[in-house]
């Protein structure tokens, strides 16, 4: 079992088109990830960065992560301890960036059924979300196999380390 399976946490619920400018505001892009993370989502949810706990789940509706290629957007969420992002759909660039950083992003057409504060257990590999508050199971799209392997490795860096180590072994 890896860190990405069976994560449980509180849901933070947002709407459509949560963009990279609110996730990683440009003003703090030259700062450290610690500083930048303190301002993650502050334009739409000022309490988020201070109140989010390790293992919590961010829930969006359509097109989560719209906008820039800046991977500080998923990186800030990961830095704050967010275990997974669940949404009806993701912006392609954000989806790739999150996976590359080892942050599970899960496509779930029923994401709209999740309420703020619900206790969720997300299993990205199986494509399953258990809502412990409402005793219901939401099915999601399983993560494609080639990405699941990278996610289990801990992201692209870890995956490359593994690949290079293998190539260097005579």
């Amino acid at each position: 079992m890896t860190d990405h399976e069976q994560t449980a946490g509180r849901a933070w619920v947002f709407g459509d088109d949560v963009d990279t400018d609110v996730l990683a505001p440009g003003k703090y892009m030259k700062s450290s990830i610690e500083e930048l993370s303190r301002h993650c989502l502050e334009a739409v949810e000022p309490e988020f960065a201070a109140s989010v706990r390790v293992g919590d789940v961010v829930v969006g509706r359509r097109n989560f992560g719209a906008g820039s290629s800046r991977e500080q957007a998923p990186q800030a969420l990961k830095h704050l301890g967010v275990a997974a992002v669940v949404a009806e759909s993701f912006a392609g660039l954000f989806y790739r960036n999150a996976m590359n950083l080892g942050l599970a992003v899960v496509v779930c057409s029923d994401a709209g059924k999740i309420r703020a504060g619900d206790r969720l257990r997300v299993d990205p590999g199986a494509g399953r979300i258990e809502n412990l508050t409402h005793h219901e199971v939401l099915s999601c799209e399983p993560i494609p196999a080639h990405l699941m392997q990278m996610l289990e490795d801990g992201g692209l860096m870890a995956s490359l380390e593994k690949r290079l180590a293998k190539e260097r072994t005579p």
Partner: peptide, 27 residues
């Protein structure tokens, strides 16, 4: 590829060009 979301600008020249993040650029 380009490390910026507006990289598809290169598509005007009949290239397939798209944006990626920094870790993917490392790859």
């Amino acid at each position: 590829v380009g490390g910026d979301s507006h990289s598809p600008t290169g598509g005007a020249f009949g290239a397939y060009m798209f944006g990626i993040g920094a870790t993917e650029m490392l790859g």
